[in-house]
Nucleic acid binder design. Structure first.
Lengths: 105, 105
DNA sequence: ATAATATATCGTATATTTACGATGAACGAT
DNA sequence: ATCGTTCATCGTAAATATACGATATATTAT
């Protein structure tokens, strides 16, 4: 695509677009829900509930981690992932702000 | 990516992911704001405010239209775009539901 | 009819995303 | 030390997204 023009927009818009990108695959939305549903948050448990290979799930987790929506703590050979509430709250706030700005509700 | 697995998720998750995808570029977030700010919503007015070529803006409008977030009415040689409130409201509702589900606020 | 204006679409180049198998790295148990 | 388990990363292939110039289409004005 030649050179990306994304950086020429406002910080806020770039940040929110990036959060939206992290939410733009059903697997990643499902993962967020699974992390909430399960007491355990091992990667294996997530893989079990998705129609995707372990390597693919790992990539999706990486994308969610990249924007800060989840965080992972190493626990022996396992990794325990969970939703990162502060970022989630910021995302909700910014999305609400956008919807208000563009006249919703 | 070989064959997409997106269809193997729930309708709701697919729909919300698709809305998120439409919001996943700062230009498209900016466009939604511009459509609200401007009394006029001609494509030309939008192009003037973005660092992108007309063809590129047209593509972004197409993506927003694809998911129903905006609609365009032909007005002579011009096209008047505006935010599609019902879809916007559904998007907000579904996003709120997601955030509530995953424990936010 | 012709010209000017507004927008969409086509063609194309490059970047990024999605998916997977295979491999590697880290840890716990034997 | 070796083995099994858990997860990330590498390499790779195909799909999709982004960007633009050029062109097509449609309407209004002359």
């Amino acid at each position: 695509m030649a050179i990306s023009k994304k950086e020429e927009f406002s910080k806020d818009d770039i940040w929110l677009a990036d959060i939206a990108k992290a939410l733009s695959h059903p697997a990643r939305i499902r993962i967020l829900k699974i992390l909430t549903e399960l007491n355990s948050c091992m990667v294996g448990s997530i893989v079990d509930q998705l129609p995707l290979a372990q390597a693919t799930v790992s990539q999706h987790l990486k994308e969610l981690k990249r924007v800060g929506l989840i965080k992972g703590e190493i626990d022996g050979p396992k990794v325990c992932y969970c939703v990162n509430q502060p970022v989630l709250e910021k995302a909700k706030k910014q999305l609400d702000k956008l919807f208000t700005t563009i006249g919703c509700c």
